[in-house]
């Protein structure tokens, strides 16, 4: 795709507009918004983790409105079936007779909110695998293309473990980012309360559409990255592998297995987006460091020692970053 200087210069402008518009409805959570946009423009899916009531669903809704994209919300429950997600063939009777017709599931949207994804059974969870990775759905031997852009935003509650099914590693790996939604500060709470209880709610306006998103994605993919920066990102991913001789001590001690090549892809592609969002035309070490946390935290599995000592993945990633030479 041909890309002009104007396209590149318009990128940052458009992203700022999107960010600004979402921020109208979302109080605080600046980093969450930025990271969601980064993942979305890098063509990935996001797993949001946070306690209920922090605005995760609201964020997704706002995004869909700002981007003028179709939006589906699937509340994952233990009795949710795969067909409830991807759709199914149903018998349709009309003048010509009875026939099977594919009834698309809620996954056939630009933005899919998989709310409390860990409440569904692994069978249902895995129904999303193909959609998330291939952006296709296969039902009854027929593969159907999902609308573009396609973006899954899943949420999970870190507190409630009863009756939940932790996401399998294969599925976790398909999320570009795992974003931790923090509890808002006092000021932000004031603002949230004022906005929601005093009827001063502001509606975000549409500032982009699917086509714009696709164009922004292609621009982001072309952001130059120096060999040394790319090397740094790849060394970072390798440093999460405890089986390597040159792995840092923290890795050997607290990590059971490290990030997959998808982790490296996630880091590079989201770092590119961040670079342009920051007004640069190249990826920096700082970009890599910034995206390393959301890109790797769900891709490293803690060892028994790590879990026993209550180590958080972010802490380990931070230590690896501090030991890694640029």
């Amino acid at each position: 795709m041909d890309m002009s200087i104007n396209d590149i210069e318009a990128f940052a402008q458009k992203v700022r507009e999107i960010e600004g518009e979402i921020a109208k409805e979302m109080v605080g959570q600046r980093d969450v918004i930025r990271q969601v946009i980064m993942a979305m423009l890098a063509g990935g899916n996001v797993l949001l983790e946070g306690v209920p009531g922090l605005g995760k669903t609201r964020l997704v809704r706002t995004i869909s409105r700002v981007l003028d994209l179709s939006f589906s919300r699937i509340q994952f429950t233990p009795d949710l079936m795969p067909a409830d997600v991807v759709g199914t063939n149903i018998v349709v009777r009309d003048e010509s007779g009875s026939r099977f017709e594919f009834q698309p599931g809620p996954v056939f949207s630009n933005i899919v909110l998989a709310d409390e994804i860990n409440r569904a059974t692994p069978k249902t969870q895995s129904a999303l695998l193909e959609a998330m990775q291939e952006h296709t759905v296969t039902v009854g031997g027929v593969t159907r293309q999902l609308p573009q852009p396609f973006f899954v935003l899943a949420t999970q509650n870190p507190i409630e473990q009863e009756g939940t099914y932790p996401l399998p590693e294969a599925q976790l790996d398909r999320f570009m980012f795992k974003i931790l939604v923090e509890f808002p500060s006092l000021e932000e709470l004031h603002e949230i309360i004022d906005m929601t209880t005093a009827g001063r709610e502001v509606k975000a306006q549409k500032v982009a559409d699917g086509q714009t998103i696709m164009r922004l994605r292609s621009v982001a993919a072309a952001v130059p990255i120096a060999r040394s920066v790319q090397d740094y990102a790849l060394r970072l991913v390798l440093a999460t592998h405890p089986e390597r001789d040159d792995a840092p001590q923290v890795t050997k001690r607290y990590i059971r297995y490290g990030a997959s090549p998808r982790g490296a892809q996630s880091i590079i592609s989201t770092a590119k987006v961040r670079a342009v969002m920051e007004g640069r035309y190249n990826v920096s070490f700082e970009d890599i460091r910034y995206v390393a946390y959301p890109a790797l935290r769900h891709r490293i599995a803690l060892s028994f020692e790590g879990m026993a000592e209550g180590k958080a993945p972010d802490e380990i990633i931070g230590q690896i970053l501090s030991e890694l030479e640029e």
């Binding site: 890309m3 002009s4 200087i5 396209d7 590149i8 072309a222 952001v223 130059p224 990255i225 120096a226 060999r227 040394s228 920066v229 640069r280 035309y281 190249n282 990826v283 920096s284 070490f285 700082e286």
Partner: peptide, 17 residues
Amino acid sequence: QERAITAYERMGLEDAF
């Protein structure tokens, strides 16, 4: 922020970026 090294590595390229 790696502007110089990136520019150095892309010397001679004339694409928009």
